[in-house]
Design a protein around this nucleic acid. Structure first.
Lengths: 240, 240
DNA sequence: CGAATTATTGATGACTTTCAAGGGATGTGG
DNA sequence: CCACATCCCTTGAAAGTCATCAATAATTCG
């Protein structure tokens, strides 16, 4: 059986509270089932879309873990985000009808493909969907403001602490532990996201271990003191 | 006469190509005139909206110049953008029905107030408006990706060069010079946006002057070598 | 005109990067 | 199932970049 032919139904999806509007009538909900054209599997290491590619759809992550990253001709490189189940990617492509970054699966993944013209069509008829789409985009804008604050005003320790707290909080919202996590990305990818070199990320992890804030075994991280991380992020030391 | 009572019409506005969809029928265009409830004047130094304030409207800048900035309780501070005539601000407020940053006028300004529920209503009926709203939000997301690249991977000179090029390019799109500009913000505000201290911004300006890339007299900047700035931004030196 | 804000410049120091080397982990093919 | 190649991570030493502290000058605004 072709996996792409599997009948898709948001109304039955256990992630729907993450990607869909809440409080829909049954009628509206069943209309939303039309949103997802197909599902698509993406192997670890391969791309869901790439810079320059024509934009057609938004993608809701069902399983797996992605990074989005910019690569300029002159060799600069920036991870702009890490995305997990229930999150929507592809918003960058709307403005110029083509994607402006790469979305790379960091582990085998599956996404729901939602053709954007269908989203716009349904949005005109289902008010809750319309508003939901607006909220998703606004949320991404606000998230990026936070990253700008991080990159613009935090030191290495603070950045990594904020990063870990953010990750674990999102994982917890998905039913995972509040204190344990498995990083799906390399030190280099973390560094790129945080505006640091991989050695700095590694050293900062080591420092946290020394201070008994976390335990680290390669990509397995156990947070021993959430407050310790919080204190770092809220540090007043470097502010006027 | 109450200035807020002035009859507002996007269809006659000389900025409409900047904030409105293009290629509308006369009929749709006249419908869009309903979008703008009133205009509002904002004195230099005062805020259009502030963090925590209830979100009601998006704002199209008619005249003047704004900064948007985040301020956390622990004293961190980050300018997230500078906005000029024809640009839309307030998108951050949609997701949680309240603004998450401050919008401060850096010179006396006037904005068109567009109640968001009216935008959503009209969006359902005028497809071009719906798509335009999506594009504006997507554009903001892409812009922020660019800022992340800047903050995450560029050195001071490169950041300031990119900043100047971006500013002058936007001003040029509004009919101003390609080579001369008046900064509306302080060195500290530039620094906050670029993740640098004001002294570093000042020093970097001085270095550019020494290298005869720009002339600087306080806030008046004349670009002598756009290519020089471009070369800095596209520098391969710090990339793998 | 004077106070306050803004900008410049120098000296010093902190933090991060760069360069380098070695150890572990992972995965593939024999 | 082991061996080997590759990738990833850690750690040290040195260098570079930017921040901080401080003093002065220029400008703006009431």
């Amino acid at each position: 059986m072709n996996p792409q032919a599997i009948k898709v139904a948001c109304s039955n999806c256990n992630l729907r509270e993450l990607c869909m509007p809440v409080g829909l009538s049954d009628q509206d909900m069943s209309r939303l089932d039309e949103l997802v054209a197909v599902r698509r599997k993406v192997k670890r290491g391969s791309t869901l879309f790439t810079n320059g590619e024509k934009f057609t759809s938004l993608y809701a992550i069902r399983t797996g873990f992605f990074k989005t990253c910019l690569a300029t001709e002159d060799g600069r490189d920036q991870v702009t985000g890490f995305q997990m189940a229930g999150e929507i990617i592809g918003l960058d492509g709307i403005v110029n009808d083509q994607h402006t970054c790469d979305a790379v699966a960091l582990e085998d993944a599956e996404v729901c493909v939602m053709p954007f013209d269908r989203i716009e069509e349904l949005s005109r008829e289902v008010n809750a969907l319309q508003h939901h789409v607006h909220k998703i985009m606004s949320r991404e804008i606000v998230r990026e403001h936070g990253v700008m604050l991080l990159l613009g005003s935090m030191r290495a320790e603070e950045r990594l602490a904020a990063f870990l707290l953010n990750l674990v909080q999102r994982l917890h919202a998905r039913g995972f532990s509040q204190s344990e996590l498995v990083l799906r990305m390399t030190r280099e990818e973390i560094g790129s996201y945080l505006g640091l070199k991989l050695e700095t990320v590694s050293r900062t992890f080591s420092k946290f271990v020394e201070e008994e804030i976390v335990e680290v075994k390669q990509r397995h991280v156990r947070i021993l003191s959430t407050e310790g991380l919080q204190r770092l992020v809220n540090n007043q030391a470097h502010c006027e």
